[in-house]
């Protein structure tokens, strides 16, 4: 009986010993993993910390040397990777030579489908929660050009509705842009191809450009913009559709990431009615030049003297 007990106690103690070892082992392993993880975290947060420090001191895009641009882009890519867990490319293609981009829109063809609006959001990585849209399609009463009578939120079963016509409005890439003059820190400027762009990392978010724009073309990130990672367009341009942060302005930039490579802007590609004509105003053979020379065209608020490079025409 006593022996039995002894045996038992022996067994118990052996078992508990094994258990203890086991626990120790697991703890040890856990600790080891923990240390490695912690080291990774430290390394990662160290990188993150130095990245955020560097982004604080990030220069104005136009003041950076080519090397600095490369370093900055690598950092911006790491940032995008952290936020979206996705590799993105950030292009810096300069304006094409002898190019001045312009747009013409056939309002007799536009049926108000808003395909351009959706394509633009997909292409240009606007925050889905911030709900920024670079194009606003106005439903207008036939017989009037009064914008104040337009409907911005039309939502009937089918379009076009009887007695209405549709007027898409986006950045007009003015030759004499009031927004550029307004900016107190030169965070927005007109490129040589006539496109008004923003350095999202230089903008201080004062929104004075928004006040200055007669076309309501500039939009502000009131909160941190989020795009579902699977929807994020990874092909970006520094002055174009790269991911933005909260507190900065953004706007239509004629899809520089596409158009500087000879592609059409996303809105034109998406338009099912062929109402949109984009092209080089300096190329006499271009379709847009044909329209300007042969159609009756008009521009919105031409009287304000901002020289928009966006024309409307009818068949």
């Amino acid at each position: 009986m006593t022996e039995n007990l002894k045996n038992n106690s022996n067994q118990v103690s052996r078992r508990s010993l094994l258990k203890k070892i086991g626990v120790l082992g697991t703890t040890g392993a856990a600790a080891a993993t923990g240390v490695t993880l912690a080291a990774q975290v430290v390394e990662k947060s160290g990188q993150e910390f130095s990245d955020s420090l560097d982004s604080f001191f990030q220069k104005h895009y136009r003041r950076m040397s080519p090397e600095e641009v490369q370093v900055t882009i690598a950092r911006l890519q790491r940032k995008a990777k952290r936020k979206y867990n996705k590799d993105i490319s950030i292009d810096t293609a300069p304006p094409l030579p002898v190019t001045l981009f312009g747009y013409a829109l056939n309002i007799s063809k536009c049926k108000g489908y808003r395909k351009c609006v959706d394509a633009c959001v997909e292409e240009n990585n606007q925050g889905r929660d911030t709900q920024i849209q670079f194009i606003r399609v106005l439903e207008m009463e036939r017989g009037s050009m009064n914008l104040e009578e337009s409907n911005h939120y039309y939502d009937p079963e089918t379009v076009p509705q009887k007695g209405k016509f549709y007027l898409p409005v986006q950045c007009m890439q003015c030759e004499n842009p009031p927004c550029v003059r307004a900016c107190p820190v030169k965070a927005t400027w007109k490129e040589d191809d006539g496109v008004v762009v923003i350095d999202y990392d230089w903008c201080i978010g004062c929104r004075y450009c928004m006040t200055a724009c007669p076309y309501w073309a500039r939009h502000f990130n009131w909160n941190e913009p989020h795009v579902p990672p699977e929807e994020l367009n990874p092909v970006t341009h520094y002055l174009g559709n790269r991911p933005r942060s909260k507190g900065v302005m953004e706007k239509c930039m004629f899809c520089v990431q596409r158009t500087r490579k000879g592609k059409q802007p996303a809105c034109m590609e998406a338009c099912p009615t062929g109402a949109r004509i984009f092209g080089n105003l300096l190329d006499p053979e271009s379709e847009i030049r044909y329209i300007l020379e042969n159609k009756t065209v008009f521009r919105l608020k031409e009287d304000l003297g901002t020289e928009p490079k966006f024309w409307y025409f009818t068949d």
Binding site: H60, A187, W202, G205, R207, K246, G247
Partner: peptide
């Protein structure tokens, strides 16, 4: 929107 970038307004250092 970005008060952390207010130094961008400084002459010479910023723009």
């Amino acid at each position: 929107g970005r008060p952390d970038r207010i130094w961008h307004m400084l002459p010479f250092v910023g723009e």
